[in-house]
Design a protein around this nucleic acid. Structure first.
Lengths: 217, 217
DNA sequence: ACTGATAGAGACAGGTCTGTCTCATTGTCA
DNA sequence: TGACAATGAGACAGACCTGTCTCTATCAGT
């Protein structure tokens, strides 16, 4: 089985921080960049310049470290969100535009490796895995905040708009991996604005329900 | 480290097929449902009732089997696509509606576990991994077909519309895992139709480029 | 100077993983 | 019947993984 190439073994985290902080930072970096299953405990301790027992004294297990990694990323995520929202607190439409503009930049970075919560959910299909609870909580909160935004725009169907925007965001995250030459991300902001505009216009545009034939290969 | 729970060890694939076919079917099922890294060769041979050497006589390595799995799923995918397109070959707008309606059903199935190409890309971050080429090819072809559809609708900006629809599709795939209670999928078709309608209307709706402040935590 | 908390170093156990090897068995076609 | 290809069964090697254990070193506060 082809393995991911291992990186340098030298310390990459300043040694003046606590062992716990060094471990968490290193794990966050490695788990995000190379995947959780692909990164072993030995790699984390080597890269953070920490003894193995220091890891297991601070985290009960690798799963526990994974949960800590996700909670750390969750914090960063809402920090980013709040920062974007703060620019125009009373203009929800503008906040949506800003959100998708910032998201476009975020997912267009060459180092971008997708949403850690989606990625982790893929790596651990068992929805009872402790990490999955953190992933679900992040997405639930994302949906809640999008609904709040949608309501404040005065959209005709705020729940529907929120879910449409949610789908766009998830699509931006997921498509970051497989379009190396020309990312679809630049179309993101236009899509969000078109969906919002469609909900603010006069004519009621209801989705057409059609009974297409079922196909299950 | 918490492990995925192993299933029954009994044969689940009819023994009258060739060893290669049994292996590929079992691997396809297991890789998709439980993830690639999580499923070992021993599990595959046990579930398919095949000797280990029969596996390695038909596939050079696990990576080779993974590539075969992805090509198999790729075939199924375009089979599904062609089936949906065949209903109204000369009405691109209707084809788009049908596509998203069918997609909604697809991702709403309780057994749905996301897009195998996105999932595999997450499991193997190294873009040089042989499996990644199959994933990229699938997504490139998806984009090509969406562009063809968009052109045939007479959309003002076919490339933009195709990428918007692409983002929606990817979002539907990615969001299948983390919204167990109330999936955003029902909003999918309405979003696609609204994006199409926005491109067929009179007024030019150009995305607004705004220089929001950069935030990199 | 003494104490106690924190951490480094590394051996080790027990399990799992991929991939190889040998040998016996089955089935098919001539 | 004989030959040959495909397959089953299972031991095995070598690597890697998580988690435990022991012993030693450092450093801050009193």
């Amino acid at each position: 089985m082809r393995k991911s190439k291992g990186g340098a073994e030298a310390d990459e985290v300043p040694a003046d921080k606590s062992a716990r902080a060094r471990i968490l930072e290193t794990a966050t970096e490695l788990f995000y960049r190379e995947g959780i299953r692909a990164v072993g405990i030995d790699t984390i301790i080597a890269r953070s310049g920490v003894a193995k027992m220091s890891l297991y004294r601070n985290f009960a297990s690798k799963d526990d470290l994974v949960v800590a990694f996700l909670k750390y990323r969750d914090g960063i995520y809402w920090q980013w969100w709040d920062h974007v929202m703060a620019a125009h607190p009373d203009d929800a439409a503008r906040q949506i535009s800003d959100l998708f503009a910032s998201l476009t930049r975020r997912v267009s970075s060459p180092h971008y490796r997708g949403c850690p919560f989606i990625n982790t959910s893929t790596e651990f299909p068992d929805s009872d895995h402790p990490a999955r609870a953190v992933c679900r909580a992040n997405k639930r909160e994302l949906r809640r905040r999008l609904l709040d935004l949608a309501r404040r725009t005065g959209a005709r169907d705020p729940e529907g708009l929120a879910d449409q925007l949610l789908l766009l965001m998830e699509g931006a995250y997921a498509s970051a991996q497989n379009f190396p030459v020309r990312s679809p991300a630049p179309s993101l902001q236009g899509a969000a604005e078109a969906l919002l505009a469609a909900q603010l216009g006069r004519q009621a545009r209801r989705p057409v329900r059609r009974d297409a034939r079922v196909f299950s290969p």
